[in-house]
Design a protein around this nucleic acid. Structure first.
Length: 376
RNA sequence: GGGGGAGUUCCAGAGCGGUCAAAUGGGGCAGACUGUAAAUCUGUUGGCUUUCGCCUUCGGAGGUUCGAAUCCUUCCUCCCCCA
């Protein structure tokens, strides 16, 4: 994997770049739809490819390890062939599950024991095993095993956890360097900065991660409930330390506003379940603001779902119809909303890139952020 | 014609003398969702005040009682069985 900065914004730290992988090019800033279990939920691949057109999607180590399991993924020839997706894939390491499945796991210096949310069976994840699993899955970009700390998190715990993540990172790097991908294309390992909301920890972690000298670097442990301002502060601090010539990936972020604000701080890659999950729950993100399509106010609004959207979902169906689908519990509702939201997120980052190239990003961001957060 | 059963807040359906503005489910209305245990979850759902509280409400009317959705009388409506 290679990364090259192509353009920089004059009035912010935003940059436009290009990532090259064996499965294709990724133009940054980029949003990566989340496809945890080898599928982006509620959308057909035809629509994902033809309507949404993402450059790269995510998978998840913990979930794919549980189902379908490594035997099947190896036999399938890796995640791309298994799910019929020939573009780049990034897999998260399971570090987020250390946070989200906190009641079902136990951390030790050696690794994490998860109790499966599916059948209750216990599975021990070490940094080495997580690398092995991600080798088997075969994503183009794989993540180091980390502990995503919760918010709030006391300093002592955050410090201890960061050191653990650093220890695991060294083990991940060593094991990664001593192994190879199985499917004939290259994989890249991204380390993850932790340190909760503490500046000194974030600084130390950003330096530690930078010293790993990997193809790209990630910022984790944010967007876990802390105020947006805190998230921006930590992101800026870390971005200023991470090397300029490496891609920066802010994990799990975020709202459209979060994304624009963090592009301005120098982040290149984002992922978030928000456009897909919230779509399934009836929330639409648009250029004008947020729509709760279940609200009564849309009952007789026969205008297109998004007059400015360029997918068939946006143009062909009305808000009133989409509301009807949601109110009726019809699965087409979540499907159409997912197409819309993902395409909107893709538009958002593409437009950000255009504005960066034209040197207009900062001003554009300013007007957009005021609009995007409005409730319609 | 004879016998039996039922009518409860938007719907279905509990309650069967006071702790009932009335369980529960559905529906309605609104909210949450950030490296996905989520097509999930939460709140609210008679009116007025909104702290206390007050008013109207359990088919209609009347009655018993300190007190009734709950007991009695009567009327209306609906359902089932037998002829």
């Amino acid at each position: 994997m290679k990364f090259k900065v192509a353009n920089r914004d004059q009035n912010s730290k935003a940059r436009a770049g290009i990532i090259t992988t064996d499965h294709g090019r990724i133009e940054t800033p980029i949003f990566m739809p989340v496809g945890t279990g080898a599928t982006v939920k509620a959308i057909h691949y035809k629509d994902l490819e033809e309507q949404v057109q993402p450059d790269i999607i995510l998978g998840n180590t913990y979930h794919l390890y549980q189902r379908p399991g490594m035997d099947i993924l190896r036999k399938a020839g890796g995640i791309h062939r298994f799910m019929s997706w020939e573009q780049p894939v990034l897999t998260d390491s399971g570090g987020y599950q250390v946070y989200s499945l906190t009641e079902r796991r136990k951390i030790t210096q050696e690794g994490v024991t998860f109790q499966s949310h599916i059948d209750g069976s216990r599975h021990f994840f070490t940094p080495e095993k997580v690398i092995d699993i991600q080798r088997d899955i075969g994503a183009d970009i794989i993540m180091a095993f980390d502990e995503c700390t919760p918010y709030p998190c006391d300093y002592q715990y955050a410090s201890k956890s960061m050191k653990l993540t650093h220890d695991w990172l060294e083990r991940c790097c060593t094991h990664f360097d001593n192994t190879e991908g199985h499917y004939g294309y290259s994989q890249s390992l991204f380390p993850i900065v932790q340190g909760s909301t503490y500046k000194d920890l974030r600084e130390a972690s950003a330096r530690f991660v930078s010293d790993c000298n990997r193809a790209g670097n990630a910022i984790g442990g944010l967007s876990v409930g802390e105020p947006a301002e805190v998230m921006y502060e930590m992101t800026e601090l870390v971005c200023d330390i991470l090397p300029e010539d490496k891609a920066r990936y802010l994990m799990g972020v975020g709202t459209p506003v979060n994304i624009l604000e963090c592009i301005a701080l120098g982040v290149d890659m984002f992922d978030c379940v928000m456009p897909t999950r919230n779509a399934r729950n009836g929330m639409l993100f648009t250029r004008e603001g947020i729509i709760n399509i279940r609200n009564k106010k849309w009952e007789t609004d026969f205008s297109p779902i998004d007059p400015e959207g360029d997918t068939f979902a946006d143009q062909r169906y009305s808000k009133a119809y989409l509301r009807h689908l949601f109110v009726s519990g019809e699965m087409l509702g979540p499907m159409l909303a997912t197409i819309h939201n993902l395409r909107f997120y893709m538009w958002l980052v593409k437009e950000a890139r255009n504005r960066i190239e034209k040197g207009q990003f900062a001003a554009w961001k300013h007007t957009m952020c005021a609009r995007l957060a409005q409730r319609l």
